[in-house]
């Protein structure tokens, strides 16, 4: 399978989600090959899962005060704080036919690419089903997947640096969420690359790029003009609207 790789770029939350959806359209129609992309979020943002309530999961007032955007993803999973300088996000968008048919197997496969990237930095991590990657018992990467009309879309985040106060100032974490984790607080549940390596953020990107592309037939590419137009349209028409973000 041939892959298009779109290198690290920075966009708003709404545009990042719009780009994923636009790529899913073009991969579905065959206009573009399977695609993986790496990106950051500016301004910093919180993304929530498809089935979450924005008001329950996010301190919206605090976000507004701090200039942090918020967006509902099309994927399930939990709320994530995407710091402009504290993480790298990836998306993998491919026809289901070219990926493992089982949800769990496909999580394991793609999370394996993240794990390989971290290993190149000397960080030993492991897949923690359903959708996490951990170092020891601390989460360093969260991942979420959807399948629609024959397309698999998985996105996930790798924590580079951690501003615990900021992260948990905007996320509302219920006590039930960590009730089975044998930890006293959510702060104990997360970790980041900087806890284990002095690598720069660019170095982390290079390592992830290597982990994702190892052994694959790929080329470095860009969004097509059509994809860019669609992404703008999804960004304005869906992801940037209260109707979508406050729909639950």
């Amino acid at each position: 399978m041939k892959w298009r790789v779109i290198g690290l770029e920075t966009n708003t939350a709404y545009m990042n989600m719009g780009i994923d959806e636009a790529i899913a359209h073009s991969v579905r129609t065959g206009a573009e090959p399977a695609t993986m992309r790496f990106y950051k979020w500016k301004p910093s943002a919180v993304s929530i899962g498809r089935f979450q309530s924005l008001g329950d999961e996010v301190n919206v007032e605090r976000c507004r005060e701090l200039g942090i955007d918020y967006v509902r993803r099309i994927t399930g999973g939990g709320a994530v704080y995407h710091d402009s300088n504290g993480e790298i996000t990836y998306s993998v968008i491919a026809k289901e036919a070219g990926m493992p048919s089982g949800i769990h197997d496909s999580y394991r496969l793609i999370c394996g690419w993240v794990i390989n990237g971290l290993a190149a930095l000397g960080i030993e991590s492991s897949f923690a089903p359903i959708n996490d990657i951990v170092v020891g018992n601390r989460k360093i990467s969260g991942n979420a997947q959807t399948r629609r009309d024959g397309i698999l879309l998985q996105h996930g985040t790798v924590l580079y640096d951690l501003d615990v106060e900021r992260m948990f100032g905007v996320l509302r974490i219920s006590k039930e969420k960590i009730s089975d984790k044998l930890i006293k607080s959510v702060e104990e549940r997360v970790t980041c690359v900087r806890d284990y390596s002095g690598v720069s953020q660019d170095g982390l990107y290079e390592a992830l790029l290597g982990g994702f592309t190892d052994g694959k037939d790929f080329y470095m590419g860009n969004l097509s003009k059509e994809e860019l137009g669609q992404a703008f349209s999804f960004s304005k028409g869906t992801y940037g609207t209260d109707a979508w973000n406050f729909s639950r």
Binding site: Q52, A79, I130
Partner: peptide, 12 residues
Amino acid sequence: IQILGDFFVYPE
């Protein structure tokens, strides 16, 4: 009724 959370359902 609303069923909410960080789970996954396919198709959504």
